[in-house]
Amino acid sequence: MNYLPLQIIVTVFSLLVIYRLIKKFKDKTLKIGEFITWFLIWLGVLVVFWVPQTTSYFAFFLGIGRGVDLAVYVAVLLIFYLIFRLYLKADKQQKEITKLVRHLALNEREEDNE
């Protein structure tokens, strides 16, 4: 089967993401740990699409039948992990909003008294 069109689409998309990652890292909106993690993930995507045999090698090593199955398993796990991280982040932001709202409520009362 000819995967070339898909390989090109994924490559263009991955390079765009990597370009944005580098830009964000330079702007100091990404920490070095985050940058390296994301960079390796998207580099991994490129490797998997251009050298698909690598997934078969790892799949065999882990006792999974096909390389593509491994790729799907890893992708699903990664998505779940990211959703979890986002949930924790949203929860933290909710707490920060509460602190602000409380500060405002107490301050307003003190100002009214003055």
């Binding site: 909003i97 409380r102 409520a105 307003e108």
Partner: peptide, 25 residues
């Protein structure tokens, strides 16, 4: 009486804590 206002709905626990902090102060 004393009325404190949350400008965004934060829930009953958050409201009690706001009142508690006021009372403690």
């Amino acid at each position: 009486i004393v009325v404190l206002k949350h400008y965004i709905n934060r829930g009953q626990g958050a409201s009690l804590e706001t009142g508690d902090r006021y009372a403690l102060k």
